[in-house]
């Protein structure tokens, strides 16, 4: 968040010591939060040294031998690394294609005259945001699984042949993208609804007087007015292009579609956490590569947003 610099106050600030004494209880209020961040966000960063070591849990972090960039070299020579990067980018790019969905939903909602109807629709479309991926994936299973899925039951009932949708490599990305849109479209529309609510109503009135149609109003007033918001959201989305919704991908993975859903976090989880400490150093290096790249992406995209006079997130 960009903080606006305060004008230097006319009254002189009191000395550090009096301020410390005055605020002693304030520090106590902030202490739990600071301790949590220290123990669970900053303390783990120490373990990043592992990425440059051949970590041996018996020797510990301090005595494990340093190996420099060995694990990163292995990473960049690993065919699997490029597969994971490629899969991540493919999933991100496909979900980028669905970027207009919440905008369209917001435009539709904005056209509704009846407040009660609008609220009912909003209640329904915001709901999936609050469901866990476990629920969403279970629902997908109930709809698409080969024997029990609703879709296949309908296909069979109408004389067709059941298909194994969840094991089909060619449509697994489609399923993943539909799940993400289903879960996020309502929630994503809130920010655009807020932007639309901020548009000066006189613009519409003037246009109406000039005989503009509904569609013309949307194209020439609503869309240009929310364009800054759209730009910010799009740029921020670019910042997360190297990340996928990991819980979703992990839950959707099965033996037949595995190679399509092999992404960094799934690999780290399966090879680092699940198969013991032998791969700790290598998987930490993969994680570090991802963290660094996404940090750079967030900083760069945020710079782009703020340099265009808009409010960023940092």
């Amino acid at each position: 968040m960009t903080t606006i610099q305060k004008q230097p106050s006319i009254i002189r600030r009191s000395s550090i010591r009096t301020r410390l004494r005055k605020h002693a209880w304030l520090y106590l209020l902030g202490l739990p939060g600071m301790l949590i961040l220290l123990f669970f966000n900053y303390l783990p960063m120490g373990s990043l040294i592992m990425a440059f070591q051949d970590y041996d849990p018996w020797k510990g972090l301090l005595n494990s031998p340093f190996v420099g960039f060995k694990h990163f070299e292995r990473l960049f020579n690993d065919k699997k690394f490029y597969l994971m990067l490629w899969n991540t980018l493919k999933i991100s790019f496909l979900s980028l294609l669905t970027f207009p969905a919440p905008i369209i939903l917001a435009l539709l909602l904005n056209e509704v005259r009846s407040a009660a109807y609008k609220k009912t629709i909003q209640t329904a479309v915001y709901l999936p945001h609050f469901l866990s991926w476990t629920i969403v994936v279970s629902l997908t299973f109930f709809l698409l699984s080969s024997e029990q899925g609703l879709v296949n039951k309908i296909i069979v009932a109408t004389g067709g042949k059941a298909r194994r949708f969840l094991f089909d490599k060619s449509i697994i990305y489609l399923i993943i993208v539909i799940q993400s849109v289903w879960k996020g479209v309502g929630w994503g529309s809130i920010v655009y609804l807020a932007a639309i609510a901020g548009i000066d109503q006189q613009l519409y009135e003037a246009a109406r007087l000039d005989g503009a149609s509904k569609l013309q109003c949307i194209l020439h007033i609503t869309l240009p007015c929310i364009l800054p918001t759209v730009a910010v959201m799009l740029i921020l989305k670019m910042g997360s292009i190297i990340s996928v919704d990991f819980e979703q991908v992990l839950l959707m993975t099965n033996a037949l579609v595995k190679e399509k859903l092999e992404v960094f976090e799934v690999f780290i989880y399966q090879n680092g956490v699940k198969s013991g400490s032998t791969q700790f150093s290598y998987t930490t290096a993969i994680g570090m590569f991802k963290s660094v790249v996404s940090t750079i992406l967030v900083i760069v995209t945020n710079k782009i947003v703020t340099s265009n006079g808009m409010r960023g997130i940092i």
């Binding site: 966000n41 960063m45 990043l48 592992m50 680092g272 994680g287 570090m288 991802k290 967030v298």
Partner: peptide
């Protein structure tokens, strides 16, 4: 918000 240590460091922590 910008930088996280990652899964394995968190797990070891």
């Amino acid at each position: 918000m910008l930088f996280g240590a990652g899964m394995i460091p968190n797990f070891i922590n």
